[in-house]
Design a protein around this nucleic acid. Sequence first.
DNA 1: AATAAAAACAGTAATGATTACTGATTTTGA
DNA 2: TCAAAATCAGTAATCATTACTGTTTTTATT
Lengths: 129, 129
Amino acid sequence: MKNYSKQREAIITVLRDMKTHPTANAVYEKVREIIPNISLGTVYRNLAALRESGDILAISIGDGFDHFDGDKKPHIHLHCRECKEITDLYMTEDPAGEFATSQGFVPDTSVYIVSGICKDCISKQENQI
Amino acid sequence: MKNYSKQREAIITVLRDMKTHPTANAVYEKVREIIPNISLGTVYRNLAALRESGDILAISIGDGFDHFDGDKKPHIHLHCRECKEITDLYMTEDPAGEFATSQGFVPDTSVYIVSGICKDCISKQENQI
DNA sequence: AATAAAAACAGTAATGATTACTGATTTTGA
DNA sequence: TCAAAATCAGTAATCATTACTGTTTTTATT
């Protein structure tokens, strides 16, 4: 087999357990709790490889960092333009993936990002009137 | 009114007309045909502002560049891991946006990226057997 | 159409997230 | 057990993007 190292194993574990959408640096900080002398370059290299192979997702919301996600169950990333939070919203199916399949494309990962204003920020705006 | 300049106008026009998913630099090259002495910084500044305001989309596929898209009609970006092409697949509705709405989120833009292997690359693989 | 404040610009310098490099270590497959 | 292949830690380099500065354009008001 190829592609094994305890560093990669730890990175995957950390990503599967984190419910946030950490940056490469946040993953690095977390993995150091398991492997204290892991290198930041190793984290970047493995995140890039895992993304390329479709084992993890990467999402971009315009804050200058890539955010990573170890959860491949179909879900939407609700990105609030106000508070900048990313919240997960789970779907029972993957509509885009299924539509892609029907067109002859063979999908393996789907990234959904819906930007707008979240429930909480709408309440706050209404209270200000 | 605010936010007007002929540079921004030209950037929007170029993005609406391009059917590809250009990088900031590709937008810059194209806009220079209209405004030869426009600055690359101006292109970046406007692309960031237009993205922030939800007037254009940005998509990230892991090649180190942000790609921009002036088309807000609901569509999926089919990203082939083999040939790296991004193809548009139009939907009649925006399933994730509608689902988000039903949960109290107020959406304004949706980005869909489905990664996998495109029709053409599958044919090529089959021919190789 | 004159004017002043605000916004945006061109051009350039700086930043910093990410990638590349090198010699050491780990993993793999026989 | 051993050698080739892969990965690593640590560090240096890259380069897409952002910030800065003095100038020009736009806006809003008279």
